[in-house]
C-alpha cells in the first residue's frame, strides 16, 4: 500500500464494495434496453470500469476479473461464450505492460492511450465473430471506441464520486 501512496498521496485504496458496486452498475448499463443506433455506439461500460480499476487497483481487478467479466459480457450480449473473455484478456495483457506509464498521465492523455485498447477489443471481437459466424458489424459500431475513451474523461469523477463525500 505504501507504493501507491508515493504517486497519489491523497488517494487511499478503494474499498471492495465500491469496486463491486461500480462494476455492477456497468453491467446494468450494458443490459439497458438500447436499440437501433444507440445500441451500436453504446460505450463499452464494462471495459471502461474494468480498465479503471485494473489501472488503479491491479491487485483486486486482475486477469481473472477481466476473464470473468468477459464471460458476463458474453452472456449479457448473448454472443458466443468466450469472445469478450478473449478480447478482455488480451486488453489486460497490454494494460499490465503499460499500466505504470498510463498512471503518470492526466485523464485526457490516458484516454488517448486507451483508445487503441478499446479499438483492439472491438477488432478482436470482429475477427472472431467473422470467423465463426461470417457476419460483419455496421461501420458505425467502431465509433464505440471513441465514445468509450471520451467517457473515460469523466469516469474518475463518476467512479470516485461518493469517495470524496464519504471521507470529507
Amino acid at each position: 500500500m505504501m507504493i501507491s501512496n508515493v504517486n497519489q498521496s491523497i488517494k487511499r485504496p478503494a474499498p471492495m464494495s465500491r469496486i463491486v458496486f461500480t462494476l455492477l452498475i456497468a453491467v446494468v448499463l450494458t443490459l439497458l434496453p438500447w436499440s437501433g443506433y444507440a445500441q451500436l455506439i453504446e460505450p463499452n461500460w464494462i471495459l471502461i470500469v474494468l480498465l479503471y480499476w485494473g489501472i488503479h487497483e491491479p491487485r483486486v481487478i486482475n486477469g481473472s476479473a477481466f476473464f470473468v467479466f468477459g464471460l458476463i459480457a458474453d452472456v449479457a450480449q448473448s454472443s458466443i461464450l468466450g469472445v469478450h473473455a478473449l478480447s478482455f484478456s488480451v486488453v489486460f495483457w497490454l494494460l499490465s505492460i503499460y499500466r505504470q506509464r498510463i498512471l503518470t498521465f492526466y485523464a485526457a492523455n490516458q484516454a488517448l492511450h486507451l483508445l487503441p485498447a478499446f479499438l483492439l477489443n472491438q477488432l478482436l471481437i470482429t475477427v472472431i465473430v467473422y470467423v465463426t459466424n461470417d457476419t460483419t458489424p455496421h461501420l458505425i459500431w467502431f465509433s464505440q471506441s471513441v465514445l468509450s475513451s471520451i467517457c473515460w474523461l469523466i469516469t474518475p469523477y463518476v467512479v470516485e464520486a461518493k469517495f470524496s463525500t464519504k471521507n470529507s
Binding site: G63, S64, F66, F67, G70, G82, A85, L86, S89, T132
Partner: peptide, 17 residues
C-alpha cells in the same frame, strides 16, 4: 496466466460455437 486465459477463451469459443 494470460496465455492460459486466452487459450481457455479460445477453447470456450470453439466448444460453444
Amino acid at each position: 496466466r494470460q496465455s492460459l486465459y486466452i487459450l481457455l477463451a479460445l477453447f470456450a469459443i470453439v466448444v460453444d460455437n
